[in-house]
Simulated assay, not measured.
Amino acid sequence: MDEQRMWWEELFQIHEFATYSDVAASLTNNEVDFLEMILNLTPDMRVLDLACGNGRHLLGLARRGYHVDGVELATPLVNQLSAQITAEQLPARVIAGDMRKLDDLGMYDVVLIMNSSLGFFSDFEHQQLLNDLADHLVPQGRLVLQCINPYQISSYMQHYRRGWHQVGPGYVLRESHFSPTTGTIETAYRYIEPDGGQAVHPGERIRLYTFPEWQQQVQRAGLRLQAVFGDAVLPIVPFDETSQWQILMAMK
């Protein structure tokens, strides 16, 4: 990951969540409640959180006594998360690396890919990643994959297409559009500093898949789809025509 992208990761994953810490804490607590319930987690299980970012889910689960490994590419996030794990003496660790290169990892009872963290690569790479994850799941191990539902992209984009919001001392302008020919959300960001200085994001592209497409990819990886939910909250939200999210749970 180049220095410019790492700067943006630090801005969004550290400073943005600090700016909106109360909202982030409430969201994380609700999502961890959801994961505990649907996975019927027990303290002896090993959990892998891929593209763990600032560690919202990793820390939330580890604070409840679960053993969690995280994989994250951005060095500033790895450093901060490692320091936090050490300071709190949590049963967790964070591994610096690309989520597409999992050879050195062991076996897990649960693998999490939350908040549309899968979709930044090619179709072939996404399938290969799912294949590799299946190899790192124990028998009857489970994968939880949270991603945007493209059938409701118009509803999702009403709140996401364009807007300013404060991050730290400055403001971020977000401009997004969905390309139906490629099935991708493409987003540009610009950060305005208090002194008028600006930083421009190199660009973000997320491939969205429909539920039938995800179902096929999961099955090709040798996993059996168990359930799909409309949001990562409790009480359970069914996946239907109004759902902006799709959360798939599959078993090896």
Rank of each mutant, 00 (worst) to 15 (best):
Q80D: 12
V94Q: 12
Q13V: 00
H67K: 13
L143S: 05
V78T: 11
Q89H: 15
N149K: 01
A96V: 12
E125Q: 14
A87S: 15
I148L: 13
D69P: 09
M249F: 00
H136E: 07
K101T: 10
E241V: 03
A227P: 01
L145Q: 02
Q4K: 13
L143Q: 07
F120L: 13
W164F: 15
V68F: 05
E31R: 03
L41F: 11
S82M: 10
G222L: 08
A134G: 13
R174V: 09
M251N: 09
W214P: 00
P91F: 10
W164Q: 08
S117E: 02
L118M: 13
D33S: 13
T210F: 10
Y156A: 02
A92I: 11
P235H: 06
G196Q: 02
M37I: 06
F17K: 10
N149T: 09
I38E: 08
W214Q: 02
P202Q: 05
L77H: 10
A62I: 01
E36T: 07
D135R: 13
D22C: 00
V237Y: 07
F34S: 09
T242P: 00
F211H: 08
I192K: 03
T19G: 06
A134E: 11
Q140Y: 11
L48F: 11
N149A: 07
K101V: 06
V172I: 15
S122Q: 05
M157C: 07
R224I: 12
G119R: 04
D22Y: 02
Y171N: 06
A188S: 14
G183H: 08
E186F: 05
M157I: 03
P139I: 11
L61G: 07
T210Y: 11
S122T: 15
V71R: 03
R162K: 12
V23D: 14
S155M: 05
F34M: 04
D123G: 08
C147Q: 09
W164Y: 15
G65L: 10
Q146K: 04
P169M: 05
R161C: 07
T187D: 05
Q198L: 07
Q146F: 00
G170S: 07
L27A: 09
V23L: 14
G53P: 07
R56T: 09
L77M: 10
T86G: 00
D33K: 06
W8D: 05
W7L: 04
E186N: 13
A96L: 15
L35D: 08
G141S: 04
A87P: 02
M37D: 15
A250W: 04
R174S: 15
